[in-house]
Amino acid sequence: MDWKIELVAIPVTDVDRAKAFYEKIGFNADHDASPYDGIRYVQLTPPGSGCSIAVGTGITTAEPGSVVGMQMVVSSAEDAYQALLAAGVEATPVKDEGWGWFTYFADPDGNKWAVQQLEGYYS
């Protein structure tokens, strides 16, 4: 049996602001629905990913900005860093962490993301 992680809830204060932010950095908005009062569910997927995030209202009790350590893997950390800067996102310069190259950024609520390059690191 496969156990797949396919959706992670990211707590935010403003759903429209979060949706716009993630779209600005290249995530695709797959769904945006309010199936009943008190629920709004927005699913966003990074390009090429089998896992999506969900932002919304009524989908998590976690505090906005409390996520630390969400991680995406890319073929080029430098290209990712440059794309984040071009989108107006504050990101850290690429750093060799000893197990890959990383750049870090946060969404408007302060949820913290790591972007890791493994490809070419161990060759």
Rank of each mutant, 00 (worst) to 15 (best):
N28H: 12
A29L: 15
D30F: 00
D30I: 10
H31L: 15
D32P: 02
D32T: 01
A33G: 10
A33C: 13
P35C: 02
Y36F: 14
Y36I: 11
D37N: 10
G38F: 01
I39P: 12
I39Y: 15
R40K: 05
Y41G: 06
V42S: 01
Q43M: 14
Q43C: 11
Q43N: 06
L44E: 04
T45Y: 00
T45Q: 07
P46R: 06
P46K: 07
S49C: 09
G50K: 15
C51K: 01
C51N: 04
S52L: 01
S52D: 04
I53R: 09
I53P: 02
A54L: 03
A54G: 03
A54V: 09
A54T: 07
V55T: 04
G56L: 04
G56H: 07
G56T: 05
G56K: 05
G56I: 00
T57I: 13
T57S: 14
T57L: 04
G58W: 05
T61H: 12
T61E: 15
T61Q: 15
A62P: 12
E63M: 13
E63S: 11
G65E: 02
S66D: 05
V67H: 14
V68K: 09
V68H: 08
V68G: 12
V68D: 12
G69Y: 11
M70C: 13
Q71K: 13
Q71Y: 14
Q71F: 09
V73Q: 15
V74H: 00
S75K: 11
S76N: 11
S76C: 04
E78L: 12
E78G: 10
D79S: 13
A80N: 01
A80R: 07
A80F: 09
A80S: 10
Q82W: 10
Q82L: 10
A83N: 10
A83F: 08
A86K: 15
A87L: 09
A87I: 04
G88N: 12
G88W: 07
G88P: 12
G88D: 03
V89N: 08
A91Q: 08
A91I: 04
A91G: 06
A91C: 06
T92S: 15
P93R: 09
V94D: 05
K95Y: 14
K95I: 15
K95G: 12
E97P: 11
E97G: 04
